[in-house]
Computed example of a mutant assay.
Amino acid sequence: MTERRLALTTGAGNLLLAPFGAMPMCHGAGGLVAQYRFSARTGSAPGLLGAILLVLGLGFAGDAAALLGAIPLAAVGALLVFAGGDLALSRH
């Protein structure tokens, strides 16, 4: 993904979702690194994640909040450690 494409898709997402009350967002280096670390090598991985979250949010908002809240914070922390480590090692 080029810097131009990254900026355009982030900007388009922010502009399209702002009228619905969405918070400004970015693609997030940590999220991309975590997806790549766990074998996501194409652009379809973030698209699939976005589609799943969209369906959960639009169709099952209350249940989705409970489901996502059931993920242990230790698991989220472990993902952050891996993503942060990969980002730190990529600087060398």
Rank of each mutant, 00 (worst) to 15 (best):
residue 23 M to Y: 10
residue 43 G to E: 00
residue 27 H to W: 05
residue 7 A to C: 04
residue 80 L to K: 15
residue 8 L to M: 11
residue 83 A to D: 00
residue 89 L to G: 02
residue 68 L to Q: 07
residue 70 A to R: 15
residue 75 A to W: 13
residue 48 L to P: 06
residue 11 G to W: 05
residue 68 L to N: 06
residue 13 G to T: 04
residue 63 D to A: 15
residue 12 A to E: 01
residue 6 L to A: 08
residue 15 L to S: 09
residue 36 Y to M: 10
residue 1 M to Q: 04
residue 64 A to D: 04
residue 71 I to V: 15
residue 43 G to A: 05
residue 55 V to L: 12
residue 32 L to H: 11
residue 83 A to V: 02
residue 88 A to Y: 10
residue 16 L to K: 06
residue 45 A to C: 10
residue 7 A to V: 06
residue 31 G to E: 00
residue 37 R to P: 05
residue 43 G to Q: 05
residue 11 G to S: 09
residue 10 T to D: 00
residue 46 P to F: 02
residue 65 A to G: 12
residue 60 F to E: 01
residue 57 G to V: 03
residue 46 P to A: 01
residue 35 Q to N: 08
residue 33 V to L: 10
residue 44 S to I: 14
residue 4 R to Y: 09
residue 73 L to K: 15
residue 49 L to W: 07
residue 75 A to F: 14
residue 51 A to S: 03
residue 44 S to W: 13
residue 19 P to G: 04
residue 52 I to F: 07
residue 90 S to G: 02
residue 42 T to C: 06
residue 57 G to L: 03
residue 83 A to Y: 05
residue 75 A to V: 15
residue 23 M to S: 09
residue 62 G to H: 12
residue 39 S to T: 14
residue 78 A to Q: 13
residue 52 I to Q: 02
residue 60 F to Q: 08
residue 52 I to C: 07
residue 50 G to H: 03
residue 62 G to A: 14
residue 86 D to F: 10
residue 14 N to L: 01
residue 8 L to G: 02
